[in-house]
Design a protein around this nucleic acid. Structure first.
Lengths: 144, 144
DNA sequence: TATAATTCGGATAAAAATGTCCGAATAATA
DNA sequence: TATTATTCGGACATTTTTATCCGAATTATA
C-alpha cells in the first residue's frame, strides 16, 4: 500500500513518539534497532521528516530526535504520507490515466473514489498520538 | 495504488474486451497503441495473463489476443491484481510488519483492515465485463 | 581544548521495477 | 514452399527505489 520508506517513517514516528512521551530523546542508532530498519536509510527519512517540521532533530553529542506533544496531536498520518510518498496514492487514477477526473472518468473512477476516500479519511482522522497510543496501550505490538 | 504493470493490464483488458465483444481479435501492436503503453513491456504482461488463463493468445500471422465472454464475466479485477501484483496490497501490514495479524495487531491494524476490506470488496465485485462496459457505454473514457 | 557522539548531505551501490531488443516458433496466405 | 505477421521467451538496458558509506559540521563533556 505504502512504500517501504513510508513504512519506516510510521514505525520510526511511533518509536520516537513513545520516547518523547516519556520525556526521552532518542538517536538514530536506537530508532533503527527498535524498528528493525536499515540505519542509514532511516536517517534519510528522518531528515525529510525534520525538514517537514514533523519532528525535531538535535545535532552533536547527546543529540537525537524528539517529537513535541503538539506535533503528536496535530500531525496526521496523511501529512506523513504526503511528505514521504507524495499524493499519488490519494489522487492517482487506478488505470494510470493522467486525465481521469469526474469530467472524464475512467471505467473504475467512481468505485475507486470510494476506496480512496476511505483511505483518505482514515489517514486524515488518525494523528500520530493515536498511532503511538495504539502502540503503548498494550493492544498492539511494534516489534517483529 | 497498483503497479504500472497492473495499470497496463487493466487498460489492455479493457481494450481487448471491447474488441472481443465485437467479435474482433486484436494484436499487441494495436493494444499498445490504443492504451498508450510500451509495446514489449505490455507483451510480457499479456503473456502472464494468458498463462493465467484470463485471456487467449493465438500465435502466427493473423494471431492476436481475445477474451472469451465467459472470462469477461467470471474474471474479477481481484484475480488480475493477484496475477500481476500478487496479494501484498490485500494482506500486507501498513507498517510493513511481517507478523502483524489480529492476534498481534500493529497500531494501525484495525483501521487499515477497513480500508483494505473496502478495496478487496471493490475488486471482488467488479468483473472485467463491468469494467469494459463502463468503457463502452459512453460514461467514461479510456484513452488519454 | 580535545574527544567523542551525533546529525547532515553528498556520492555511490544494490535491488527491484520498468522497458527494449532479438531470434525462435508458429500459422495464415500467396 | 516461401513469405509475412504474429506471439514467445530469454537477454539486456534503463530508471526508480532502497540501501550503504564517508567526510563535514555540530555540540556535550571530560
Amino acid at each position: 500500500m505504502f512504500s517501504k520508506s513510508c513504512e519506516y517513517a510510521f514505525r520510526a514516528l511511533i518509536y520516537i513518539g513513545l520516547c518523547s512521551q516519556k520525556g526521552e530523546k532518542t538517536s538514530l542508532k536506537y530508532i533503527a534497532e527498535n524498528i528493525d530498519s536499515p540505519q542509514s536509510f532511516t536517517a534519510k527519512i528522518l531528515q525529510k521528516l525534520s525538514k517537514a517540521n514533523i519532528l525535531v532533530s538535535e545535532k552533536g553529542a547527546n543529540g537525537g530526535f524528539i517529537i513535541t506533544q503538539e506535533k503528536l496531536q496535530t500531525t496526521r498520518l496523511y501529512d506523513v504520507v504526503i511528505v514521504v510518498d507524495g499524493d499519488k496514492i490519494f489522487t492517482g487514477c487506478a488505470l494510470g490515466l493522467v486525465k481521469c477526473n469526474s469530467e472524464k472518468p475512467c471505467p473504475l473512477h467512481y468505485s475507486f473514489l470510494e476506496v480512496r476516500e476511505k483511505l483518505r479519511k482514515t489517514m486524515l482522522h488518525t494523528n500520530l498520538e493515536d498511532m503511538v497510543n495504539g502502540a503503548s496501550d498494550g493492544s498492539s505490538v511494534l516489534r517483529l
